[in-house]
Design a binder for these strands. Structure first.
Lengths: 224, 224
DNA sequence: TAGATTGTTAATCGATTAACAATC
DNA sequence: TAGATTGTTAATCGATTAACAATC
């Protein structure tokens, strides 16, 4: 098994990996044993070329004349992602969104393990969310010293996001899943940040609708 | 005011628009009146060229030797996105995530207006979420006939997503914000779909951590 | 063996960056 | 006018697609 070239992979490729993982998982659930890049491409609205190129960034998982064994392929992609690692994860901010993230996501399926929830509001202390008791933020340092979590989910207001993130880095956090409506900027380049802006996402719908209406040139909705 | 070439804009450009809108909004809040593509680029970790190229897809909003008036620029981007349109929006699925989306998002800021929440579970009927009463799904057709919503948010299990979406298209829905863990496929090409996969997003963190650990070649975590 | 489909190299396409003339 | 910065064209870079020899 040749050690695959794991560095210098384009982020576009990396962002497609979870989607491959998902689709292959669905096919396996349906009882499909093997598939070809062409078949997968049709199902996923990609090209066969792209799928082969993407996978070959990490290794040769297929077999000429046969295609890909799906269970094997899924296992390999899972390894690449680190789906079995169970990275210890803590969540900050037990508001509407924080609670929903905590209880709605199956962290185990995504390589993470939610081990703590913190909130700065003392009135939320000991409240139960997703089988965990919300902790006051002043318990944070003791907890980190014992548990050593590596991933932090930020569901807090943007005003406090950067300050908390910097502090968390000093306590050993290596990756941020950031819902705080603020683009985190990290000085250490090896800190991983995934900024999620749900507002940006829904705005693209508005753009699409606005643009669709503008298609017919003599629309009355042309409010210029 | 020349009618800008609104079609054939790359989706990469479109996806950056909300981010421009956000950053410019922040600067305005801080009292900044004008800025240049160079300044904006530094703040947003982009290049000045890219910002000028992106904006010039829609029109010339700047002034040579001066830069961009931020209030004007924000207004223009807002128009392009349709931030003032208030597209009528309905949400399906009043579970953890649905409730959080309904109460956490300021839809007005994103060009949408949440006007209804539906759930198939009769026990949730009349429950209050974000100032709205959850409606039973069998009230849907009457509601649509009266209100004519254009945007649907799907916070439902993947098993029922495609079927519901097809039905909603027949009732006049033009855009989907889809959290159902399933990639919607629409036959009409003018239906807008934004599939949100939070699982995919957090998996890229796991990838990053797994890859970071693999950097030093003789790490003990090499579980091959 | 013949057929299928990969892994991989080469060609194309599109997006980003650089350069610069236009102009405020 | 001189300085700054845009809008826009040209050059570069990277990603996708096509092609095909290798091989199961």
């Amino acid at each position: 098994m040749p050690k695959a070239k794991k560095s210098g992979i384009s982020t576009l490729v990396i962002k497609r990996l979870p989607r491959y993982y998902r689709f292959i998982g669905e096919l396996i659930k349906q009882g499909v044993v093997r598939s070809s890049s062409g078949e997968l491409a049709a199902k996923m609205s990609l090209t066969a070329s792209q799928i082969r190129q993407d996978l070959n960034c990490f290794g040769g998982f297929g077999q000429q004349g046969y295609g890909y064994n799906l269970i094997e392929l899924r296992t390999e992609i899972g390894k690449i992602l680190g789906i079995d690692k169970g990275y210890k994860t803590v969540l900050f901010g037990a508001g509407n969104l924080g609670k929903a993230i905590a209880s709605h996501m199956n962290f185990g399926e995504y390589g993470c393990d939610l081990v703590g929830i913190f909130d700065s509001d003392l009135r939320k202390e000991n409240e139960k969310v997703a089988d965990l008791s919300v902790m006051s933020i002043d318990k944070m340092e003791d907890f980190f010293a014992q548990v050593h979590p590596q991933v932090a989910i930020l569901c807090i207001p943007k005003a406090s996001a950067q300050e908390l993130a910097d502090k968390l880095v000093s306590l050993g956090i290596k990756a941020f899943w950031n819902f705080s409506h603020y683009d985190l900027k990290m000085s250490h380049s090896d800190i991983i940040v995934e900024n999620v802006h749900l507002g940006d996402s829904i705005m693209t719908l508005a753009y699409g609708l606005t643009n669709l209406n503008a298609h017919s040139d003599d629309e009355s909705s042309d409010d210029a």
